[in-house]
């Protein structure tokens, strides 16, 4: 019985994230437009885009290899697996023990690895630019993630997301300077990793500073659809991660009753929407950075993370 419930929860979570992901993108876009006093597309526009792309033919460059064609699926599935392991509305996911936070970060790393390779496959200069910059950003962002993992793991005594989330709900947490630092740096990393302003601009296509769009420039049709979905999924994943780690209230704990799950779900959606709003507000308020300012931005995040970790080592009281 328990097994079936766990399976259901796990399956629901996997489906939920996939279904919710385009909506998040749509909501952010809509909110941004409204903030700019534009009408903006419907929040459902991303779904329509996906469907349209799926129906279209794929136009492949002459020299595209098998890697180019299989990369979208790999990228999507690794992101999906990572997203499926982050507690969204309930902790105690059935398979959450198969990968901890470090493994989730690494799974996202795998997705990025293949994305960068796909960007280089056809041999264009834009693709190269994108891959090169993506790897640079990642090289600086991932250590920050690891530092954040350190902070959380040292506090909760575990790198398992479920355990950390359970710890964060518990009264043992309190207000801590380190947690604040970790939170800020997680926000910064999330922005960099999901390619949002001020690091990257998801809306541009022909700007010299673009990163993510440059890599997927040669993709079309269903491949592009899968990649777009993967991108949205990643945004959702980071939002869920922030929600799960720093706003864990309302998370359904294991062995809860059915209506508790409902509360969890509602809380989750509320949190995600809040996140979308904050993101849209932030993106509207700030200008895009030059590419070579990014290391400074991420360096600051790394320093925050490291400082947080060291503070923790020095004293558990912070």
């Amino acid at each position: 019985m328990e097994l079936i419930r766990d399976l259901v929860v796990q399956g629901a979570q996997m489906l939920l994230v996939v279904l919710l992901a385009p909506l998040v993108t749509g909501v952010v876009r809509k909110l941004k437009s409204r903030l700019l006093r534009r009408q903006g597309p419907s929040v459902l526009q991303p779904y329509r885009d996906l469907l349209r792309l799926i129906r279209k033919d794929v136009v492949l460059a002459d020299n595209a290899s098998w890697l180019f064609r299989s990369a979208p699926y790999l990228i999507f599935s690794t992101t999906w697996v990572a997203a499926a392991l982050v507690p969204t509305f309930a902790t105690g996911l059935m398979f959450s023990w198969s990968a901890d936070l470090i493994a989730i970060v690494a799974l996202l790393g795998s997705a990025r690895f293949f994305l960068a390779l796909a960007g280089m496959d056809v041999g264009t200069s834009f693709g190269g630019i994108g891959s090169s910059r993506e790897m640079m950003i990642a090289a600086l962002a991932e250590p920050v993630m690891i530092m954040i993992v350190f902070v959380l793991a040292l506090l909760a005594g575990s790198t398992q997301l479920s355990t950390i989330a359970a710890y964060m709900v518990s009264p043992a947490v309190g207000l801590r300077v380190t947690l604040g630092m970790a939170f800020v740096s997680l926000l910064m990393v999330g922005i960099a990793e999901t390619g949002r302003i001020p690091v990257d601009n998801p809306a541009t296509h022909l700007e010299l500073t673009m990163v993510h769009e440059a890599m997927v420039l040669e993709y079309s049709g269903r491949h592009l659809a899968v990649l777009e979905l993967a991108g949205s999924l990643k945004l959702l994943l980071y939002l869920s991660l922030i929600a799960c780690l720093f706003l864990p209230w309302g998370l359904t704990l294991p062995d809860a009753s059915a209506w508790m799950y409902g509360i969890g779900l509602a809380a989750y959606i509320a949190k995600i929407l809040t996140g979308c709003g904050a993101l849209a507000l932030f993106e509207t308020a700030i200008a895009k950075m030059r590419v070579f300012r990014i290391p400074t931005f991420l360096g600051a995040a790394l320093m925050l993370g490291l400082l947080g970790t060291l503070l923790l080592f020095v004293s558990r009281g912070f």
Binding site: I54, F126, L217, E218
Partner: peptide, 14 residues
């Protein structure tokens, strides 16, 4: 559920 067709073309590169 979707198109399985593939067309080959020269590199686009914007």
């Amino acid at each position: 559920f979707a198109s399985r067709r593939i067309r080959r073309a020269p590199i686009w590169d914007c």
